[in-house]
Simulated assay, not measured.
Amino acid sequence: METEVLYSGYSYHDKPMYPDEWIGNDYYLLRLQTEGNCRICLDGRSERLVPGDLLFLRPEETYRLVVEENEEGKAGSGDYYVICKGAWIDRWASRGDKPKRAHIQADGSVLDIWKRIVLERRRIGENNGELVDYLLRALCLTLERAFKQANGGKSDNVRGVAAHRMKRYIEEHATQTFAVDEVAASVRLSPSRAAKLFKEAFGETIVKYAIRVRLSIAIERMQYSGLTLEQIAESCGFGSYPYFYRCFMKRFGVSPREYREEASPIA
């Protein structure tokens, strides 16, 4: 295996804690704050972590975690972590600029993989090292994409994050019918502001990108399912076959039926 997971899990601290400094030795640490908040001492600075804050420490790098009571006399800090090493991780860590700390969109695309790693590590006696290896790679690559999205945008980081969140909303809801207003509402912007921001970030309109995603899904279903073209149009968010037909013809220059016949679909 090109990766090794030493520890992984979820931890929640509901009492104040002031542990000793953590030293990774030969291991990397990935830690994602998901609940509450805490304070860390990193590179001689004291910083507060909130949900979505990710730590990435390389071998021999150190930090200290501090959980304190709030104004109400309560403490609470939850996080997912993985401590790992390996040749693949070395190559991944050296590729591009990966900050020690970043704020990311901690959604299902990240947490689902992280939870799966934790679950697979609990399956004592099963030969699942290869699966954990690939899950860890998937987690690292997903986090790398989150790094880039968190630092996206033309000149304003907040605008870049909003644009990527709209893009993700379209991808996740592509098989449903939705309006530009709903995409804008997902990032709490007006429709006109959202449309302008999306066009600046990606060079095409929200509607055009949604059509591209839907057509991609439709082609997969045309090739690998026995659904009728009418069913595909409905299930891919086009709403009707005539609209699907017009979009398909404009994009590919042939009708859906002609494309399907040439592609020799699997029925």
Rank of each mutant, 00 (worst) to 15 (best):
K100S: 15
Y224T: 13
R58H: 14
W114G: 01
R95Q: 05
K199P: 00
Y28C: 10
P256Y: 05
R121A: 05
D53G: 06
A93V: 07
K85T: 14
Y134K: 11
F202C: 07
L54K: 01
R116T: 14
E120K: 10
I89H: 00
V82P: 00
Y12D: 07
G24H: 04
L65D: 04
S94K: 14
P99D: 02
R91L: 14
R212K: 15
N37P: 00
E69K: 13
W114I: 02
A179K: 13
V158I: 14
G52H: 08
W92Y: 13
G153S: 12
G36T: 09
I117G: 02
V161C: 11
V5A: 12
L227V: 07
N37L: 07
I124D: 10
A174G: 06
E61D: 10
E47S: 04
R221A: 06
R159M: 07
A185G: 03
G96Y: 05
R101G: 03
F248P: 01
W88G: 00
D26S: 11
E60P: 00
V67M: 07
Q33L: 09
N70Q: 07
Y134G: 09
W92N: 01
E47D: 08
M1H: 11
E144S: 12
S11R: 14
V5K: 05
L215I: 11
S190T: 13
G96T: 07
A138V: 01
R58M: 13
A267K: 09
V180T: 14
R116D: 10
K74M: 09
Q223S: 14
A195I: 00
E230T: 15
T34V: 15
D181R: 03
Y209D: 03
A162C: 10
R91I: 11
D43I: 08
V5Q: 04
Q223M: 14
R45G: 01
A162M: 12
E47A: 05
L49V: 09
R121L: 10
A218D: 04
E47W: 02
L197I: 06
G160V: 08
L141M: 15
R123I: 13
K98D: 04
F56A: 01
I206L: 09
